[in-house]
Simulated assay, not measured.
Amino acid sequence: MMQRRQILAMVVGSAIAGLAAGAGAQDVIKIGAIAPLTGNFAPVGQSQLNGLELRTEEINKENGKYKIKLIVHDDASKCNESVNATIEVLTKDKVTAVFGATNSPCALAMIPSTSRYKVPQFTYGVGTALTEQGSKWIFRIAVGAPGQSRALANYAVHDLKQDKIAVLYSDDEYGASMANGFKKALQDLKLEPAAFESFPISDQDFTGQLTKVKESGATALFATGVYTAVALIAKQAKQMGMNLQLLGDTGTATPKFAELGGKDVEGTILVVPFDPDSTAPKVRSFVQKYNAKFGRNPGGWEAEVYDALSMIYEAVNKSGENTPEAVRKYVSGLTPEHPYVGVLGEWKFDQKGNADFPLYMVKIEGGKQVVVSK
């Protein structure tokens, strides 16, 4: 607990220090950020916080009217803590917008509060149910499960020539959304999964499910869930003598996955929203700044929050109104005809709040992600 408080004090202190000395209360855009900074998802939460911190520093160095103040809470991927933190930033801090949560179930648990208080919620969760609640205050800043799984299935079938693909997924909202989306994408391609198996999110032994995958004659496996579980699945499949083409989604596309999986995840194909090697000027500038601050290249999570915070800032700047409604109105107005152009390319949102932007396929080679399809 003491360590967590120290982390939060440091993060919030850094954000406050970046505020211009003369900024008045109405000139400070307060942003709630609820992410796992401890626990299994900490690498993901920290990556997202890094993207927010970088854009906050940039904005606060500009000679603009508005400055950003991040108010950070560690939810440790516990949904009750996500909800408690949400209520605090909405009622006590009066934030203009809130980011969170990283996990789909926790993001889902936050929606009643953000809807009640009419504050935009920007979530990275890809669970299908997130944007099916009838709330006009929820915005998904990741391509949802149907979009990701469709792109991955199409690449696996058309480019990799795979037609016997098994699916192994965690039995939570995230895993089920990804798995069902992938199954639907295969059916659209006139195929069925060779095997379709689930596992409890806390499992570490997947030999039972992998035995069924092996018996199915599958030559490829789409494994989805927390990246630590997917790395274990890859290792256990190799130990069982299985030589499968592994497929993964954005939740697996963290450097930690390649680090944990080692040689057993070499050749894995992942769908991602960001190419750090792009020559586009906005991307090059972002990558250079991120690298200078954090000593490594950014990934999709960092790019998503970087762009989303830029949208919030632009909404307030253009309208001259530092209000949740001004942000909601601006973001919901981003369409194919009038997109926001950021480091991820052209951002559009549908009527339910689902973002749309380009996706890439990468292959893990030598522990690195190498773009193989744009």
Rank of each mutant, 00 (worst) to 15 (best):
M2A: 15
G13L: 05
D27L: 01
I34L: 11
P36K: 05
E58H: 04
I59C: 08
I59G: 06
K61H: 11
E62P: 00
K67M: 11
H73E: 10
H73T: 02
A76M: 04
E81F: 14
T86Q: 08
E88V: 13
A97C: 14
T114K: 01
P120G: 11
F122S: 05
Y124E: 15
T128H: 09
G147I: 04
S149M: 13
A151P: 03
A156K: 02
A156V: 06
L160A: 08
Y169V: 06
S170P: 10
A176L: 12
M178K: 01
A179N: 03
L189G: 09
L191Q: 02
L191A: 06
P193M: 07
S198F: 06
D203L: 12
L210N: 09
G217C: 09
G217A: 08
L221M: 03
Y227K: 06
A253P: 04
T254V: 02
T254E: 04
G267D: 02
V271L: 06
P276T: 08
S278N: 03
V283Q: 03
V287T: 05
F294M: 12
G295K: 13
R296C: 10
R296N: 12
E304N: 12
K318S: 09
S319N: 08
S319G: 07
E321R: 14
A326P: 04
P336V: 09
K348P: 00
Y360F: 09
M361N: 01
S373Q: 14
